[in-house]
Design a protein around this nucleic acid. Structure first.
Lengths: 124, 124
DNA sequence: AAGCGATATGTTCGAGCAGACATATCGCGC
DNA sequence: GCGCGATATGTCTGCTCGAACATATCGCTT
């Protein structure tokens, strides 16, 4: 997948969460979460994609997928204008991102013991 | 992937865990965990693979990957003999599986609130 | 010694996916 | 109105992964 390493990779063992939501099968994992965060910070789908080393094509497809899966769109976009356009998180998008981050933190905390036990059995 | 549904799919929203272990990048997710469990229950790589709708080729490759990633092999196999051969979990394999299942349970419990909050925002 | 069933492993073929390339369109500023 | 920069979307192609097929080998049992 060629994901850029983030500065938060302090421990060598990481846990990744992927949610399979509803019976329609919309997925929410680290990629979409990072993308949401990037859009929130940069105000642009293309800028967020660039920062992750992802093509605009793919970033846009992920946004489309998220907007289709939830009752309200998570990202609102506009074309044209001074900056050419832009995108920002809707309140629902910000809420989903916050919940996902909180979930990550809670999970890392609750599972730390088991994770450490498994990591201790690794090859040298 | 064509995964068989398990009877434990009571809620429509499920969470999947994938561990990225060490800097060598050995992965441990639901597929390998289910395979370990199948081998433990059925005493055979091929039988475990069959039950999951997975080719023996692939099941064997996953076992190989796990055995290579951990300090001690998780699965011990034998060729020939009365039943043609077989495989069983080593104590380390059983320990890793138990830890992973415990991690799943703990995570599902700890994250239930955030997961429910996200699921509540889904389309219809 | 012959057969059985499972492990072990090479090879080949197809589908699906990700990336690259190409446009169309929009709305503000100059 | 012309250009800019970003959204929006179609198309194509290469690559990777998995499925399928094919064998070899092993050790007990009959």
């Amino acid at each position: 997948m060629l994901r850029a390493m983030t500065a938060s990779d302090s421990t060598s063992t990481t846990i990744r969460l992927r949610l399979l939501l509803g019976q329609d099968g919309t997925k929410l994992g680290p990629g979409k979460a990072d993308l949401l965060q990037g859009i929130g910070e940069l105000g642009s789908i293309s800028a967020a994609g660039r920062r992750m080393g992802m093509s605009y094509r793919r970033a846009w497809a992920l946004v489309e997928e998220m907007n289709a899966g939830f009752a309200a769109p998570l990202v609102a976009s506009s074309r044209g204008g001074a900056a050419g356009g832009g995108a920002r998180l809707t309140p629902e998008g910000a809420a989903v991102l916050a919940r996902y981050r909180a979930l990550e933190a809670e999970v890392a905390n609750a599972g730390a013991e088991h994770i450490a036990a498994i990591a201790a059995m690794l090859r040298s």
